[in-house]
Structures are given as C-alpha cells and as structure tokens.
Amino acid sequence: MAAPTKAMLLDWYRQMVLIREFEETCHRLYEEKRITGVYMHLYSGHEASGVGSMAALRPSDHVITAYRDHGIALILGMDPKAVMAEMMGKKTGSSGGKGGSMHLASREHNFWGGYAIVGGHLPLAAGIALEAKYNDKDDVTMTYVGDGATNNGYFHESLNMSAIWDLPVVWIIENNGYGMGTEVERASGQVELHRKAEAYGIKSFGCVDAQNAMKVYEVASQAVDYARQHGPAVIEHVTYRYRGHGVSDKQYDARDDMSEELKKWMQCREPIKILRDHILSAHDDVDEVLAGHESEAKALVKGAVEFAEASELPNSYQELMRNTYVPSDLVYKTESSIGAGID
C-alpha cells in the first residue's frame, strides 16, 4: 500500500474541515430551532474515521452506515445543499424531506443510506455484498457500525452470515466509547470489540487510532484488499464524539467527568489538527491551500443553509403518500381499495 500522496492529504483536509463546519453549523441551527427534528447525531470528532477509510475505496464500492451519517454523505460527495435541505425537511432535500438527518443516501454515490434502528442496516450490508458476490463483481461494501450495535442481535447474525457466505464486507466498528449514554465497559462483556467479529471467523485488522487519518487509511486499505479477494474483514476504529450521542444529549453538560474527557480528546487527539500537523511537517507551501479549504468549507455551508432555508417544505397529501409503494401494473386497485398506496 502506497502512502497517501500530498494531493490525497490535502483533499482529506478539505473533507474534514467541511464536515466539521457542516456539523457545527447543524448544531447551532438546532439550538436556534432552525433545524427542528428530534434526532440528529453529529460526526464532529469522528471525521478521520470516515475520511481515512473511504479513501481506500473505489467508486464502484458500496457504503452504508447508521444514523451518524452526515459526514459519510459529505465524504462521498453528496451536495451539502441537498443534505442541509434534508435536515430542514425541505422538498429539495436529498430524501425529499421524508428521511431527515438519519436517512441520507445517494444512489449516484453508491451510498445506501443512513439507518435509524441500531444494527438494522447490518443485514442490508450483507445483502448488498451478496449481490456483488452473486454476480461475480469484486466490489466491497464498507459498513460503519457503532460500538453499541455490537451488543445487538443484528450484529451477530449479520457478521456470522457474512462469514459463512464469504461476503465482501468491511465491517468498521466506530467505537466512540459510548452506546448512547452507556460506556462500552458497562455494555459489552468483550471490550475489544473487533474480537467479537473474530469469534465468527472474520479476519480482524485490529484496533486503530481513528483520530489519525493516515493510520486509518493504512489499515482500511489492507482490509479492503482482503475483503475484495477473500471475504469479510473487521476493523475497530477508536474515536470520540464531540457533540454527545445526539444534539438533544445534555449528558455532557451534566457530567463533569465527561466534559473533562471531552476536553482531553479535543486537546490531544483532535483529528483535524493531527492531519494538519502531518501535512505541514511533510509538505511545504501548503498554507494557502489549507486556508483555501477552510474558507471554502465556510462558504459551502453558508450557501447550503441559504439554499435550504429558501427551499419549500412539502405540504400536500400527494407528497405525504408518494413513494410508499412502487407504482405497479401488477397491483389491482379500485377506488375502494385499502392499503394500496397512491401512484
């Protein structure tokens, strides 16, 4: 595996500052009640986990995640305008205002979505990988899963299925220390979470410091190659969330030990700073590019907010009902039919 090029590192920086700007803006808009959904889980602090690992993919590979999905969407290249509009439930949102923060997706980017039930997307990931195997394609399905989900039946059934069917999945456990408010140590009998996958015969690439994008990329590249050729692989990303479980999480304000812990992560293991320091130590003449990415991120997010706020809300019965079903000639409907959906 080649070390990341200067161009790659600079692009990672662009992605990471965009995510941070986007997420912190979402947080502010939520506090200001300009975003009104009850659920919103921010990727601040997690940036290097997604950026470094997805850099190991090629465009035909697949990506799926849970509800902490804004960062994943932006890394894959979804338009911040459409993502922000989705936060506000607008018609112009990437899911037409039907999905909200937890249900971003883009066919064009092979992004199969964010999913809101803990672990619910894991068998979907195995199914997407099954299609690749069934049709002899060597695309991998990169699947992000939180530490909390490793205690749930979906995790165990899906990982076992991926092992017995040799499915090309890279399972990335994003271990940020908490499943909602419960520490990993209080929730999991095995605290080395990647070992749970190992128990099913899945190749483990171990535990990675996921605040360091370079390390993440190095290990992800190996795991992706392995999955492409042999079958499922697992990596545990050790990371941290800066904005709690979700935006409505008041735990960080209420618990001093948690805010101390948060400060420590932000001071010592800040992913954007780690990347920036690495770039500055390895390459000359980059200050201008870095500053450019920072101002571009601000401009993009500002533009996204303006676009989203200017967009219309869906407001008709037709829009409410649309896309419950695929319109189909095989379905018999009369005016008296119940439960058929409308086209």
Partner: peptide
C-alpha cells in the same frame, strides 16, 4: 438455493439489501 443459519433477523434484512442492490 441458499441455506441460512437460524438467524431470522439476518434473513429478513439480507433480503432487503440484496433486493435494493438488484436481486
């Protein structure tokens, strides 16, 4: 013709993912 383990959650969900992907 694929035998599965006794894993109903996975049977239910793998079918969804496979169908979304084109099977």
């Amino acid at each position: 013709v694929r035998d599965t383990p006794i894993s109903e959650m996975a049977i239910g969900g793998v079918a969804v993912g496979a169908a979304m992907a084109g099977l």
